[in-house]
Amino acid sequence: MFYPNSPQTSPQLTQIPYGQQYAMMQRQIQQPYHPFATTEPQARLYPYHYQGPIQQEQGGFITQQSTAASPQYVQMRVTPVDQSIMSGYPNQTANGSSSSSFNYNIHPQQQQQQQQQQQQLRHHAMPVGSVPLQDDRYRKQLIVNYLAPDVTSTDLHELFSRFGELDGARIIYDKQTNMSKGYGFVYFCHAEDAKEAVERMSGYEFHGKWLKVGYSTNPLNIVPSNSSPYVHAGSRGAAG
């Protein structure tokens, strides 16, 4: 039997160049792979992502010199942007860049009308829970959420009447099932009393439920100042 490094198959040491006398086997001759043993700084910083320098080929596509990437890492192929796409944008300079302001050559009167329309939209648009300043009635009506099913309009009136005089209180019921929808409205005579009720009743436990109280901004629920107070009856038909 002959071994790869046996004296019968191995040459004389004098015939082997210096430095390879003890590297006779194939696994010894093959050098191990060192990912950080390279002179390129990109490979030292990113050993798993770097795959060699990027070269520009004919046709405008950018390719990489090395083989496919590892399945664990996804390499994105980048193509140059066609400058003709950006030619339609206004205020574009000769080098292809555009300024931040756009001039669509709008007539001054049209621009003024658009600004007025935007101001009107901001004036009428009102986020949930906010209180408008032009109508004091919005500051007097509250919406009470997360009410228990057994709470009546009379219970709601008695709960909030300790903060001040009320114009009314009612629970909203479903017309088909005649069941409470879980929320109601309270109408105060003074805005200061309503503000105190919002601050003190939010998070209050009532009939096993934690109440959420806020201003009601729905104009359909506003009680006119010259109208008669609501009837605080315990029956659902009268309260709904």
Rank of each mutant, 00 (worst) to 15 (best):
S153F: 00
S6D: 04
T152C: 04
Q114C: 02
T67F: 15
Y104G: 11
N103V: 00
V78N: 00
G237P: 03
V186F: 04
L211N: 02
G208H: 10
Q110I: 00
A148W: 00
S235V: 08
G240V: 10
H232V: 06
Q56E: 04
S70R: 08
H232R: 11
Y183A: 02
P80D: 14
K175N: 12
L142W: 14
I54R: 02
Q20R: 11
Q114V: 13
Q26G: 00
N218F: 01
A68S: 03
Q120G: 12
I171M: 08
D167C: 06
F102D: 11
Q134W: 03
A191M: 04
K175R: 12
M24K: 00
G168C: 15
P35E: 05
V131Y: 00
T154I: 08
R236D: 12
W210R: 07
M179N: 14
T154D: 04
P7W: 15
Y187D: 11
R122M: 15
Q116V: 13
S235A: 11
R27D: 02
L147Y: 00
F188R: 07
T9V: 02
S101N: 14
I29C: 00
P149F: 00
W210K: 13
E40G: 12
P229N: 02
P132A: 08
A197Y: 11
Y18H: 10
P53T: 04
D174N: 13
P219I: 01
L166T: 00
P47W: 05
V186P: 03
G59V: 15
Y173I: 05
Q72N: 01
A169G: 01
R44A: 01
S100H: 13
Y89E: 06
G168I: 02
I222K: 06
R236I: 10
G59R: 05
A197M: 05
A37W: 15
R77A: 06
G88P: 07
V231Q: 00
T152W: 04
V128A: 07
S10M: 14
W210D: 01
T14M: 13
Q56F: 02
P132Y: 01
K195H: 05
Q72E: 15
Y183E: 12
Y46W: 00
Q21C: 00
M126H: 03
A23D: 06
L220M: 03
V223W: 13
V213D: 13
Y50Q: 09
G208S: 04
Q58D: 08
P11M: 09
Y187E: 11
Y187V: 00
E196C: 03
P32S: 09
G184R: 12
Q113P: 05
Y3N: 03
P108S: 04
P132I: 15
Q58L: 09
S130P: 12
Q92V: 11
Y89K: 14
N218E: 06
V186E: 05
T63C: 05
Q15S: 04
Y104R: 11
G234C: 06
R137T: 02
P11G: 09
H124V: 10
G52A: 12
P7Q: 04
Q176C: 10
Q83I: 09
H232K: 03
T14K: 01
K209D: 02
V223C: 10
V213P: 13
Q83P: 09
T38E: 15
Y215M: 02
L45T: 12
E57V: 10
Y46R: 06
G208E: 08
S98I: 09
M25A: 02
M86Q: 12
I62S: 06
A23P: 06
G164A: 05
R170L: 06
A169Y: 11
L211Q: 00
S70K: 03
H123F: 15
S161C: 02
S84L: 07
H232P: 12
R200S: 10
I85D: 05
Q12K: 08
A238I: 02
A194F: 11
A43L: 09
N218W: 01
P35W: 00
T9C: 11
H190D: 13
P149G: 09
Q118M: 10
Q116W: 01
V131A: 05
Y230R: 13
H123S: 01
F185K: 09
W210T: 08
Q110M: 05
L133H: 00
T67I: 08
K212L: 01
K212S: 05
T152V: 09
S99D: 13
R122K: 07
S216M: 13
K175M: 06
G60Q: 08
A197C: 07
Q141C: 04
N103P: 04
R27G: 09
G129E: 07
Q12H: 03
A94W: 06
D193N: 04
N103R: 04
I172V: 04
Q117I: 11
Q114H: 08
Y33Q: 03
L220Q: 03
V213M: 07
F163V: 05
Q64A: 11
D174A: 03
Q51T: 06
